[in-house]
Design a protein around this nucleic acid. Structure first.
Length: 548
RNA sequence: GCGCCUGUAGCUCAGCGGAUUAGAGCAUCGGCCUCCGGAGCCGAGGGUCGGAGGUUCGAAUCCUCUCAGGCGCGCCA
């Protein structure tokens, strides 16, 4: 739909001798009276050509060749050109879609550009919680979205395994272990609390016996910490898979950056370039030379690296791996970090516009409109696993994607578990299940489902059918917009509208009728609906169940 | 104090590279099961887009100020 309009307008501009050719924007107008597709090119060109926008629009319209595709082409408002397609044209595109031609389902935005998306990256010190879940849902959907739009995507999880947290984890498990053996041991002040630590201590006891009885932490620190760390990583991987999102391409260890000397090298390089200075016995990065409002300590006066040091190395590493775009998905409370990482990018001589941060806001978990009880298992947060158990992975992901990622989200367990239209996921999935059910019915009556589609589409003529076809055909436009803006939530909204249009159609018209042609045509429409529903849901990481 | 985000119907939120009557779901009220799944459908009422200026033929959308809420401003991670 859009592809053709863009091409046709482009050809018209060429024939008018317009040079250079502008980028041709086209969108589905919000108001139906403005046509099926609308472009503002004329307004943009008016300055370049030094003519009134409406005059430019008239010339463009005059130069359009393939007029037969359009029922009408109108110039409206300040100079928009509004296109309305003929039914024959819409039918031909629908046929393409049904014949498996993916070009009517997607737009190539990426052109093979390489994108690295880092997300979740929770510390390996406990199970994933609800906040991580939102990051996971958004990250997963974004990756799918970009892949579908012609990018090469790698999904990455950065493991903070170098700092004191892993040590603290070991210390916590060690203390609980001693306590299990009846030894009075002080629990570390900032230790990790929660049932899972006790579980780990019990597991340690079961696996290793009493070998660590009365062994001071200092003497078994390495063993216990790395044992607990491995257990936590397993736990996190299980959570990820339980949430049913695609596995990460890379799991990058912070510790490995130190071990490989990347941290030292990165800092040495910045020193050499004069972006570092010493003050108060500490080593500072001159981030104020770039976009930051403060310089940042990289090596503390006690000789220890700060967390920022490995972040420098990590982001250099990402850049060195040759990605065109680097996306970090962070909790919104980390927004203050953006300028310093941008500064790092610039200091290494890279364009910081390659770097993009998606902020994910907090989730308020509610039950009955009041804050949900804290988890016993995790101590002070609700785990991803618990939420998935309560409401299911599909619903959780879908709800997380019904908002812009950077806006706060109220997540009410009661509302979301209701089997009603309060739950938008069911509404959308129901459309898919319903279509299946229609197919089953048709088969029972001896109608061949798989064959339909190649013929008979022309019988789709009523207002609702044409509107549905247009909506289906606008899917690649929605997809493209979502990919360009990195906003998977647009797909969620599209799906709800699409499902709504279908439910409405379903109630007004019977798919299986006594008329062969009508039946075949409507079954084809249903098939197209299933294709788009399936594609869109897949991007969101949500299943399209055949039955519910 | 500085910075970032948010403020749109009773509630939760879309829309925010400017266009003609500002959208959805829930909630409220009123309808629809001899008919492919009622986890559904049809209809009604309800916002002038936190406030004030400004730019513009035209602003929820851009700019400035202001009010309210959240978050961030360590040689913490």
């Amino acid at each position: 739909m859009k592809k053709d309009v863009v091409r046709i307008v482009k050809e018209a501009l060429e024939s008018l001798g317009v040079s250079p050719l502008p980028e041709i924007e086209a969108e589905v107008p919000r108001i139906a009276a403005h046509g099926d597709i609308s472009t503002p090119v004329a307004m943009g060109l008016s300055r370049q050509l030094r003519k009134a926008p409406k005059k430019v629009a008239e010339e463009i319209v005059g130069a359009i060749r393939q007029k037969e595709l359009f029922e009408k082409v109108e110039i409206a408002g300040p100079g928009f050109i509004n296109f309305t397609f003929t039914r024959a044209y819409l039918h031909s595109l629908l046929l393409k879609m049904l014949s498996g031609d993916r070009s009517v389902l997607r737009e190539d935005v990426g052109h093979g550009r390489r994108v690295l998306v880092e997300f979740v990256s929770a510390n390996p010190t406990g199970p994933l919680h609800i906040g991580h879940a939102r990051g996971a849902a958004v990250g997963n959907a974004l990756c799918n979205l970009l892949e579908e739009s012609g990018f090469y995507v790698e999904r990455e999880y950065y493991i903070n395994d170098a700092g004191r947290q892993v040590r603290l984890l070991g210390m916590s498990v060690h203390a609980k272990y001693q306590q299990l053996l009846g030894i009075d041991t002080a629990f570390p002040e900032e230790g990790y609390r929660g049932q899972y630590i006790e579980d780990e201590a019990a597991a340690l006891l079961a696996e290793e016996g009493e070998g660590y009885r009365n062994v001071p932490f200092a003497d078994c620190e390495g063993e216990i910490s790395s044992w607990a760390y491995r257990r936590m990583m397993d736990l996190i991987r299980r959570d990820i898979s339980y949430f049913n999102i695609q596995d990460f391409t890379n799991w990058v260890s912070e510790k490995s950056l130190y071990d490989k000397g990347e941290v030292a090298q990165a800092i040495a390089y910045l020193k050499e370039k004069g972006f570092m200075y010493e003050k108060d016995e500490a080593l500072w990065f001159r981030s104020t030379d770039f976009t930051d409002d403060k310089d940042r300590v990289v090596v503390k006066s006690d000789g220890q690296y700060t967390y920022f040091a490995s972040d420098i190395a990590y982001h250099k590493d990402k850049l060195d791996r040759g990605f065109d775009i680097i996306v970090d998905i962070w909790g919104a409370d980390h927004h203050g970090y953006i300028p310093r990482i941008e500064s790092v990018m610039k200091a290494f001589g890279y364009d910081s516009s390659k770097f993009r941060v998606i902020l994910v806001q907090m989730v308020n978990l509610l039950k009955h409109g009041t804050p949900f009880q804290m988890s016993k298992r995790a101590g002070n947060f609700v785990t991803l696993g618990e939420v998935v158990d309560l409401v299911g992975a599909d619903t959780t992901k879908f709800i997380f994607l019904t908002r812009k990622s950077d806006s706060h989200l109220d997540f009410d367990i009661d509302v979301v578990t209701a089997q009603s239209s309060e739950n938008p996921v069911y509404y959308v999935q129901y459309a898919n299940a319903r279509i299946n059910s229609i197919f089953a019915n048709a088969r029972e009556k001896g109608i061949d489902i798989d064959g339909v589609g190649e013929t008979g589409i022309a019988a789709l003529q009523n207002e609702e059918e044409i509107a549905l076809i247009k909506r289906l055909l606008s899917w690649p436009i929605v997809l493209e917009g979502a990919a360009r803006s990195y906003e998977p939530h647009r797909i969620t909204f599209y799906l709800q509208e699409l499902a709504g249009a279908f439910h409405s159609y379903y109630h007004k018209y019977k798919v299986i009728t006594d008329d062969r042609e009508t039946t075949a045509a409507r079954l084809s429409l249903c098939r197209a609906m299933k294709i788009v529903l399936g594609d869109a849901l897949t991007i969101l990481g949500v299943t399209a169940p055949e039955k519910m």
